[in-house]
Design a binder for these strands. Structure first.
Lengths: 213, 213
DNA sequence: GTTTAATTTAAACGTTTGTTTAATTTTGTG
DNA sequence: CACAAAATTAAACAAACGTTTAAATTAAAC
């Protein structure tokens, strides 16, 4: 078997695990579930990853890598105004979370319930680095007297929290807006532009120095 | 054994289960864990509740009852201005979520991962009824030309999402603000006033008709 | 005090869990 | 082809799981 096929197999297991962990939770998913759905022998999971927990760690490491670079670039950019940056941040995170909603789902469960200190550390580090970069964007806008004084950490909590809430409340919104719950595409098409508009509008009012109290 | 003692024992099991479910997740908690920590015989859980899943249902039914009444009363109140109502809603939900953060934690995991249609229905109903009442408050403010046009559902998502995000990101904020993670009291004292201020400020800017675009 | 019902117990039930084993097949290399 | 390494397999492992049993204890009723 060639190297690429081997990588593919590993990646395939990761993808299946991602789906199942997101759907049924880490503890609600057995390695047999994963093996069966991935069409691999049960023992292959230990063979590739060592254990169920290591599989989760591998999944997180694999999926979590790519965000920070984009945000760093954005925060350093000199040609964009702080308002532009906020808009771009909103667009980026909305897209990101809907492209990776399964992974995002796993992150939120693990963040609360993991027994593995390694995984907890991993998640906190990712979140902290994200937060630091965005802090810079808002602080820069404040220094330029464009943004008013706000609680930066909680402002970020509102952005991330809104996103998480919407992805996690899919069943509720599907019922409200009469969308078939199985129809991921329709949901996404309906919700993402709305979400972008809402977050930008809210941030614009919230950060605008003209609205300072 | 008297009736009150029986109720106490049942309630005691529920309380222990609440703690463990919140801490380790439903699937991550065994009925033996619960029985041991509650100092009752393993079989008592089946005896009182029938099954582990029924225990969870009983827990949700027990804890979810009391919110709606207060919100209904508030939304009907004629003497308060829409702004007052928003402030009161924020105060109420911040307090509520920090008084019941364990239950809130269970609700968010179950909302995504429950295999029980009954529990899912239960949660969606609770959320829908809450949303309906708050919709009325915002719609009333809009009718009175005090609030501007906003996406009501997503505005609520921002409020609830912020709250959930803050309670679920305790470890992160504890590290940021240098609080011992075990020190629940300090965390709460630090975060709740800040959260109330932030949410009120954000909602004021977001809803104010003067900021309409 | 006796009888009946409710409660509590220890033990066992059959499954399912994550992981390991040891044998087998496939692969890459000289 | 031959050989070593890697990949894959079916089977087995002990431990933990949710639940049930049947006996023992306590409480309530008469």
């Amino acid at each position: 078997m060639s190297l690429t096929e081997k990588v593919d197999k590993r990646a395939h297991i990761l993808a299946i695990a991602e789906t199942l962990f997101a759907e049924k939770g880490f503890d609600g998913t057995s390695v047999r579930d994963i093996a069966q759905l991935a069409n691999v022998n049960l023992a292959m999971i230990s063979y590739y990853f060592g254990s169920k927990e290591k599989l989760l760690e591998a999944l997180i490491e694999d999926r979590a890598g790519y965000t920070i670079g984009i945000i760093e670039e954005l925060s350093k950019n000199q040609t964009l105004t702080p308002w532009d940056k906020i808009d771009k941040l909103v667009d980026f995170y909305v897209e990101k979370i809907f492209n990776n909603f399964r992974f995002h789902c796993i992150m939120s469960q693990q963040y609360n319930h993991t027994r593995s200190p390694e995984i907890k550390e991993l998640i906190i580090n990712i979140k902290t680095r994200n937060l630091e970069q965005i802090k810079k964007v808002i602080a820069d806008g404040q220094k330029k007297k464009i943004f008013c004084k706000v609680d930066i950490e909680l402002t970020m909590a509102s952005v991330f929290g809104t996103l998480t809430h919407v992805t996690n409340s899919k069943s509720l919104y599907c019922r409200l807006w009469k969308i078939e719950e199985t129809d991921d595409v329709s949901y996404r098409k309906k919700i993402t532009p709305r979400l972008k508009t809402h977050l930008k509008q809210m941030m614009r009012a919230h950060l605008d120095i003209k609205n300072e109290e």
